[in-house]
Amino acid sequence: MNASALKWWETIQIAWSKYTAYRLNFFLQVLGPAFVFFFIKYNLWSAIYGGDQDILIAGYTFQQMITYHIWAMIVGLIAQGHTALNLAEEIRLGKISTYLIYPFQFWEFHTAHFIAFQWLQVLTSAVTVLLLALMSLLTVPSFALILTGLTYCLFVSVFWFALQYLTGLLGFWLEETWILRVILQIMTGFLSGAIIPLDFYPEKFVQFLNYTPFPYLTYFPIKIFMGEMNQIGSAYGIMAFWIVLLWLANHLIWKKGIRLYTAAGM
């Protein structure tokens, strides 16, 4: 391994040990919400279907609805699990100065953390899928579908990371950035089909949503896993467009922010 790869590898390892050191935190902050969310939705839809296995609601049987929400949980874990919580804090507390001295840059450090986190999420997701399959709540799809879905989810997670990174960078100007992140989370949950399938939404509204990145974050990948999606190419294209856009924005904001930061001598 060359020196640069070694730096990345070391940082990833440190990130792992951090996550396991605060394992209770990791569980409560990342996995807990996903599980509770699924638990509520499972109960809610059981009550709505009232034990009837045959009726269709917005085109879903009960089993399909549960499958939808299981994949919603998995997609949530992999594609939207990462929160760049400490990024803004580091900026606000002036810890960023350390990175200006290090031979390892700020974005590299946080990206390494993101990569480490994604490994853990994929692992947790695999275990979750396995458990749910053993409980016969879920029929495991073909390996090809899993691979396609996982790849797409990881691609979406890059978008999500770039977005989180952007809100973090606003810490240069804002006292608190968590509010922005919560707004994003609420909007994404509602508009991406994570709470209920988009098929429930008024048609006009969904048509409008298709012009935003939201449906491609949760609804699309769920449909991939369920084997009902064949426009993967265009979804990749749209996500790629947004990723590039966010990357440019981050680049610009960082440049502006760091100038402000060094000028203020914080």
């Binding site: 040990s17 396991t20 394992r23």
Partner: peptide
Amino acid sequence: PGLLGALESL
């Protein structure tokens, strides 16, 4: 220290 240590501490 290390990953093994982390697992053990569980």
